[in-house]
Design a protein around this nucleic acid. Structure first.
Lengths: 239, 239
DNA sequence: ATTAGTTCTAGTCAACATGACCATAACTAA
DNA sequence: TTAGTTATGGTCATGTTGACTAGAACTAAT
């Protein structure tokens, strides 16, 4: 008979145990900055209530339940911490360094998600769940700063190439709103006229007959996104 | 005290056990096609010697050893099956569908690698290890056909954007050889003159003073690649 | 009602990249 | 010497990008 592993084993037995597997999720949403009012990237984090890194903020996550797929697990801990459903969800990377966690070997499969924040999301804030500006994070638990850096890199990349910005917006949007998303994520200003030209060239963008009223200026036309997300192996069912 | 998991448990205990974690690797190398002599993509596979899928071909892989990183594990099973060291190694994806393996839940973290095949590699072929043309694989064990499809998609993508083709070649190469790599992977012919222009525009390509002799035509100049691979979180130590 | 202020939207122009194609160079083999 | 082959440099039309101009369409202030 093979070796016996226990969850409450002593150290030598733990050495033999297989690395444990966890799922974490980097969740991005836009919120207007307090000062400028322009949209900025925010991320929800949870406070660790036990060692290691007790008291520090960390990515939402948890162990993988036996009966759910990786993506479902990510989706679940997204819902549990924010009350939101993801608009976009993609696997980021599997982190498996030897010393990510001081006590035991943990392999984390990390997903990243785009959501639209609603009142519900803000209501879900509590002592142990809080939203932070993505560019103003302190020191986080484990290697979560590294993970978020990589997620940001991936987001910027996908934004520059793919058509992903729309998943941070509602169903209808103006081209200026799309531009603001790009500006927030890429952190640089874009020429409005040139940006229009490029976006309108994409076949996934559909002009509507509606206009957004209420501004102190000419009302902009509303558009909608008709494309599909995925290229992941898990998302390729709808090509 | 928590539940006790055993490696030789009965079914109900297995349901409680955490999903097991494995590492697999998709290994790409170029070999001249028998007919045309032009380079084509090949992949080494191993024959399964036990159930499930006993007798079918599968990606090289195995469980994650406690003391090695994910990348080291991939590198190790690459070396064990082919005797080769990878020229390029990158994480592909974590596959964790519920029914990938009929008997138990397995999460596979898959890497993909580029190598240069040598005589040693061919010598390592045996009854249970064989190289196959990437475009002529039969039915493989588990979801390995899907995995290889995705790896191919990723390879083509990286080839079209990044500078990765060089890792399938030796230190010195002619621009025509680079073009042949592109043609093999992307499966279409490219204009030699235009291709030269683009490749030479890349700063990572260094002209040498050497020429390749022996052809029945004007001897082409040799070039070398001076760039670095990575953008992975695990590879970003050398930016 | 007029005007100023704002953003929306269309368009021009030069710089640059790309694909199709042509011409010459430099080797080998007959 | 000549034919065959690939290597290499170049031209030209087309498409894309970034910088910029200008008019359109609204609101708010006068």
């Amino acid at each position: 008979m093979g070796p016996v592993y226990t969850t409450a084993a002593n150290v030598s037995e733990r050495q033999l145990a297989p690395p444990s597997l966890a799922i974490s999720t980097v969740i991005f949403a836009l919120r207007p900055s307090e000062r400028s009012g322009r949209p900025t990237l925010w991320i929800p984090l949870v406070r660790r209530i036990r060692e290691p890194f007790k008291g520090l903020w960390a990515l939402p996550g948890g162990p993988l339940t036996h009966s759910e797929s990786l993506q479902d697990a990510a989706s679940r801990n997204l819902r549990e911490t924010t009350g939101l459903a993801p608009n976009y969800l993609e696997q980021l990377y599997a982190f498996g360094g030897l010393h990510r966690s001081p006590s035991q070997r943990v392999v984390s499969i990390v997903y990243w998600a785009l959501v639209q924040p609603t009142e519900a999301a803000l209501a879900d804030e509590s002592e142990n769940v809080r939203w932070f500006r993505a560019d103003r994070l302190g020191e986080l638990a484990f290697d979560h700063n590294t993970i978020i850096d990589y997620a940001l890199w991936r987001l910027r990349n996908k934004m520059a190439y793919g058509s992903i910005a729309y998943h941070l917006l509602g169903e209808y949007f103006t081209l200026a709103q799309v531009r603001e998303v790009y500006e927030a994520v890429l952190d640089r200003e874009l020429d409005p006229a040139n940006f229009r030209r490029q976006i309108k060239a994409a076949p996934e963008i559909e002009e509507t007959d509606q206009y957004l009223q209420g501004g102190k200026h000419r009302p902009p036309r509303l558009y909608r996104f008709t494309g599909r997300p995925g290229l992941d192996p898990d998302n390729r069912s709808t090509p």
